[in-house]
Design a protein around this nucleic acid. Structure first.
Lengths: 350, 350
DNA sequence: TTGAAAGCGCTAACAA
DNA sequence: TTGTTAGCGCTTTCAA
């Protein structure tokens, strides 16, 4: 380890440790320019690097934030992690990565361990509607930003929630399909346990309703016991759901899938049924992961502005980390975009 | 913050801090069972959690390892990060995530900062053939495991290198295509700067050569200036390369792409040319990322045993973290598998 | 403008 | 079996 300490620097520069410390902590104005230069030179010459553990022990603060996601193996979360890390790095923060694998116990465990690591700022991407499993830890100094989740009535007052506006996203999807002339439309998702999913469906139904398509006329597939949907499983679910829906007498001409992975699974089922995505059945997803544009045909989807979302998550977290007083909670809802590609087209024969 | 310290526990339990510390550090046998139980109860009651910064300051060790990858936004690296984190967690370690974005300066910067964070164990997934930009830091206690990179002559003696056996992977790809009757075969990659890529090509050529196809008969596309290939760009490159290759008079009947992202781009170009992947042109990739199985048609590829690779990376790192004496370096080469899906088929008309 | 000194929470000799 | 003690490297108050 870099065994040169602040004391070594002080001795070599002929000053006291506190003067060096002052320089290190943005109080350079308190010393003569020549002193300052001498110290700076010495630091360079000796290759001195402050020991963060010592600093943290002393100040109680650390330049690390925690990120808890279901799994970075999922392209969506991988992309989010990348953008968040990028935003954090720009401000000198590092990111501890935690994969909850959608296990509430593991989520709680992580948060607790992070606290004990001196990591008080955490971006939590929880799959759960309720955050009560981590709330007790807020009393211990935890600063929480909940991502991909709209604020709920039962949330602690200080919580920040950041997400795309899922209801608007659902509406955009619905408007798009209706605008293409579709009337027999299906919705495919796993169990609607998360608020996000409920919102997406709500917006979607609202759009269809405006076009005169009642709720009862929308084919809904919302998980059939297959709840433990991971990332690969989401596609699998899409395939099974679409296979069932396409087997009906009056099969839908368009399908809205809860996310892109599911949509890709839906596309597979369409092909398996001997139909062509786009021409025979329109498919629209949600997220705009990197593969959406790569798949065949390229997937029409609702894009989440991931860089903006990630930057906001970090900014909000930092705000609460720097200021000891408890800030009021709030929700940030970002607007999603419709990205039209080849998987959606006018209804056949129209 | 959890302001209950080891001292509080000691007082409450009626013992000295060192006894509590002994219990905490696996020296429970040095005390009476009843003392032990009393302390354990107190720890629970008070909700005590050790302060890691203090512990680290004292011992110089930390339960954190660093992971430097090009970008977790790339599905391959995202999957690797997930498996590595999982292996680390099982032993009580946390993972600091660093995205180098393929910038050598950033790589060096990260490693240096990690050192100053007291993080001495780092899994480095560098895109560079040489590691000299971080070597000076090895003297400062850095323990390095290089992933996705075979050992080189110029490496430091203590370096561990872990990767799939890319030459064998290339051979498997070559044998597969040859076995299907293909003779006009192309290879598509970005610039062959990394050792991995060179190895894949070498193995591939060796397999073709055994089938009587000389090097000069293999169409090679190895980047045309488009060097800054990120993740999306890899697909883009595949598309451009394949478009050019398929425009030739004697177009290839099979294409081996350097990785799955590139292969997906190749598939897109095949479709754009009015041909069918599998039937008209066989395409094989490398990695077996999650999308390989989801794409249309599902992609034949060379699978990397990612969970095993990740577990090995952590194990090797930990070995070197625990033992202060410098261990001799070594290379671990894991065997890849051929996964046959629908993107490859016998050569048309055979 | 600079320095002396105390102490953050913990571990591990060493002493009892 | 248990306790005393010194000190890890740093920041910050207070004094000079």
């Amino acid at each position: 380890m870099s065994d040169v300490t602040i004391k070594d620097v002080a001795t070599a520069a002929g000053v006291s440790p506190s003067t060096v410390s002052n320089l290190l902590n943005g109080r350079a104005h308190r010393m003569l320019p020549e002193t300052r230069q001498r110290i700076e030179r010495t630091i360079k010459d000796l290759g001195y690097r402050p020991n963060r553990a010592a600093r943290q022990l002393r100040t109680g603060r650390s330049q690390v934030i925690g990120l808890v996601v279901p799994s970075v193996g999922n392209p969506y979360w991988g992309a989010f992690a990348r953008h968040l890390e990028s935003a954090a790095l720009a401000e000198g923060y590092h990111v501890l990565l935690c994969n909850s694998e959608r296990d509430p116990d593991r989520e709680r465990q992580y948060v607790s361990e992070l606290l004990s690591d001196g990591v008080f700022g955490i971006v939590l991407c929880s799959s759960l509607p309720s955050l009560e499993h981590v709330l007790p830890l807020v009393d211990q100094g935890l600063r929480l930003v909940a991502f991909d989740r709209k604020a709920q009535a039962g949330d602690p007052a200080s919580l920040v929630s950041i997400t795309v506006d899922n209801a608007i996203g659902g509406e955009l999807a619905g408007d798009h399909l209706v605008g293409l002339g579709h009337r027999r439309i299906a919705f495919v998702s796993g169990a609607l346990r998360s608020i996000n999913r409920q919102e997406r469906l709500r917006g979607f139904l609202a759009a269809l309703s405006r076009a005169g398509i009642g709720e009862q006329d929308v084919l809904r597939w919302t998980g059939k016991g297959d709840d433990q949907l991971g990332d690969v499983e989401a596609a699998e679910l899409g395939t099974r759901a679409a296979a069932a829906l396409l087997g009906r007498r009056n099969r839908p001409t368009a399908i809205f899938a809860i996310n892109d992975m599911t949509a890709l699974g839906v596309c597979r089922a369409v092909r398996d049924a001997g139909l062509e995505v786009g021409r025979d059945v329109s498919v629209i997803g949600f997220d705009d992961i990197v593969l959406a544009d790569l798949s065949s045909p390229p997937l029409t989807t609702i894009r989440q502005p991931l860089p903006d979302l990630a930057a906001a998550a970090f900014t909000e977290l930092r705000l609460r980390l720097d200021d000891a007083t408890v800030q009021p909670g709030r929700s940030l809802l970002f607007r999603p975009d419709l990205v039209v590609r080849a998987s959606t087209a006018p209804v056949p024969g129209s």
